[in-house]
């Protein structure tokens, strides 16, 4: 699946997007965030407060308890500040 990052999540992770293959057992948004934090200190820094992170599955807002199975594009970003 494709992960895309925005704003300070993108800056802290150090790239705008990547393709990942999460291991077996990563089923929900929460699982994904937990797994990503094990991938290095830049991820740990970006995702240290998981409750703050907003997530979109295929460009639609999703809660952290939602299953990610079948999503082609998952976006992680901070709370929005447009307008």
């Amino acid at each position: 699946m494709r992960l895309v990052y925005f704003a300070w999540v993108r800056e802290r992770i150090g790239r705008p997007e990547e393709i990942v293959e999460p291991p077996e057992g990563v089923e929900t948004v929460s699982d994904l965030l937990r797994w990503l934090r094990t991938r290095g200190e830049e991820y740990e820094h970006a995702l240290e407060h998981p409750a703050t992170i907003r997530v979109a599955l295929d460009q639609t807002h999703a809660d952290h308890d939602m299953p990610i199975g079948g999503s082609r594009e998952i976006a992680l970003f901070p709370p929005m500040t447009g307008g």
């Binding site: 704003a7 929005m80 500040t81 447009g82």
Partner: peptide, 27 residues
């Protein structure tokens, strides 16, 4: 529309200060 746009539309503001400082606007 404005109330939902602020909290749901995926836009993020970064400030560029006159002093050369930068920072993301907090929600």
């Amino acid at each position: 529309v404005m109330d939902f746009l602020k909290t749901h539309a995926p836009f993020w503001k970064k400030e560029h200060g006159r002093a050369g400082d930068t920072g993301w606007v907090a929600a």
